[in-house]
Design a protein around this nucleic acid. Structure first.
Lengths: 98, 98
DNA sequence: TTTGCATATTAGAATATTATAATATTCAAA
DNA sequence: TTTGAATATTATAATATTCTAATATGCAAA
């Protein structure tokens, strides 16, 4: 049985991830990415947010290690790094649909 | 197949819930509550945070409909309202342990 | 080697969140 | 009916987040 200090550390780690998910636009981006890679343009078109804002969100998530970028000519493709996160997001979508 | 506007609304709803979970102390409280009811005192002792802060977090979650309170003499027992949320929290604990 | 498209960065004002301290309420037992 | 324990509320300073606008960078085709 784990220690309380240990449990708190885990909560802090998970809360940090959730903080990133806990934003309507970022969650929307991640829901899209949970289905597979997408370019910044695609994500911008789908979300309707400004290019700058999308890029800022993606940069933040890149820094946090949640997504990875892959350049292909002019376009940059993003994807979710940890498959467990993709699974969690899909699961949440299912759980909270109605 | 749902509309994009519809998807955005769902993201906003889910993000609002996640925003509440996305705080180390609140997540700790919820992890404890996911196992069953607990009083404010228990939660305070377990978390080590101040009485005022615990109460503020609980009041916030009560307002949001995430938890419910039940008074029993001097003590107030809290519990998570939606079993789907309990399940999600347990699931996240499992997912992110290691 | 310039032009244009795709993406990234930066700065800053507006707003939201957090924790602490102080005070108020609610209830039970003496 | 006062006292004390358990919980709630309020105000506020400190900090963090968000968005917009402006500018910069990377790349490819002409």
């Amino acid at each position: 049985m784990p220690d309380i200090a240990e449990a708190k550390k885990r909560c802090a780690r998970v809360a940090a991830i959730l903080k990133t998910l806990a934003h309507p636009q970022r969650l929307f981006l991640l829901c899209r990415l949970a289905k597979g890679e997408a370019t910044v343009s695609e994500l911008r078109d789908a979300s309707g947010a400004s290019q700058s804002l999308i890029s800022q969100h993606l940069t933040r998530m890149r820094r946090e290690g949640i997504v990875q970028a892959r350049r292909d000519g002019n376009f940059v493709h993003y994807r979710i790094v940890d498959p467990r996160l993709s699974a969690l997001i899909k699961d949440m979508e299912k759980t909270f649909n109605e």
